[in-house]
Simulated scan of single mutants.
Amino acid sequence: MAAQHHHHEHSGHDLVHAAESALTQAGEQWTELRADVFGALAGHASPASAYDIADEVSAKRGKRIAPNSIYRILDLFVTNNLAMRVESSNAYLANSHPGCLHDCIFLVCDECGEATHIDNDAVSKTVRSLAEAADFKPERPVIEIRGLCAECR
């Protein structure tokens, strides 16, 4: 059995509180806009684009929020482990265990676009070791496995 990374999965208000706590502990501010962006992102079960989030936050606030502003906030969230980026679809998922550092392994369905995040420390360790053996310093490995989810098969 592969070694797994264990952590507490947050949801709902507990997830927002955990994200706020992780961001402020990292020395960043938890602003109303950042709270709105994280709330919108956390409301998605599947990956959401910055444009999806911008539309939702704009509707909530009653004024247009530029996607560039949303991208900056999402990048901050990824840097601080509050969100994960699905590279192949340029979309984001809220991290259900904010602040917990681990590599991203996604199972991405080519049919419906659903992305399931899994943790496997043995795979992460192997990928990091291979990179280091090639004299490369891995910063944030992301592995995406494309295929069909159980619903679409």
Results as ranks from 00 to 15, higher is better:
Ala2Asn: 11
Ala2Val: 06
Ala3Cys: 06
His5Phe: 12
His5Ile: 13
His6Trp: 11
His7Pro: 10
His10Gly: 03
Ser11Gly: 15
Gly12His: 12
His13Thr: 14
His13Asn: 12
Asp14Glu: 12
Leu15Lys: 09
Val16Thr: 08
Glu20Met: 13
Ser21Gly: 02
Ser21Gln: 08
Ala26Ser: 09
Gly27Met: 05
Gln29Asp: 13
Trp30Cys: 05
Thr31Gly: 08
Leu33Gln: 13
Ala35Gly: 03
Phe38Ile: 01
Ala40Ile: 00
Gly43Arg: 02
His44Glu: 12
Ala45Ser: 04
Pro47Met: 01
Ser49Asp: 00
Ile53Arg: 09
Ile53Cys: 12
Ile53Asn: 12
Ala54Thr: 04
Asp55Gln: 03
Ser58Ala: 03
Ser58Asn: 00
Gly62Gln: 05
Ile65Asn: 06
Ile70Glu: 01
Phe77Thr: 05
Phe77Val: 04
Phe77Lys: 07
Val78Gly: 09
Val78Pro: 08
Arg85Trp: 02
Val86Ala: 01
Val86Phe: 01
Glu87Phe: 11
Glu87Pro: 10
Ser88Asp: 01
Ser88Lys: 07
Tyr92Gly: 09
Leu93Arg: 01
Ala94Trp: 03
Ser96Val: 11
Pro98Thr: 04
Pro98Trp: 02
Gly99Ile: 07
Gly99Thr: 08
Gly99Glu: 11
Cys100Gln: 08
Cys100Gly: 09
Leu101Asn: 05
Cys104Trp: 02
Ile105Arg: 10
Phe106Asn: 09
Val108Arg: 08
Val108Thr: 05
Asp110Arg: 15
Cys112Pro: 14
Gly113Cys: 13
Glu114Val: 15
Ala115Gly: 07
Thr116Met: 11
Thr116Gln: 14
His117Met: 14
Ile118Phe: 09
Asn120Ala: 04
Asn120Val: 01
Asn120Trp: 02
Ala122Ser: 15
Thr126Pro: 04
Val127Pro: 02
Arg128Trp: 04
Arg128Glu: 14
Ser129Gln: 15
Ala131Leu: 15
Ala133Arg: 13
Ala133Pro: 01
Ala134Ser: 14
Lys137Asp: 13
Lys137Trp: 07
Lys137Asn: 11
Glu139Ala: 06
Glu139Asp: 07
Arg140Gln: 06
Val142Asp: 07
Ile145Ala: 11
Ile145His: 07
Arg146Thr: 08
Arg146Ser: 06
Arg146Gly: 07
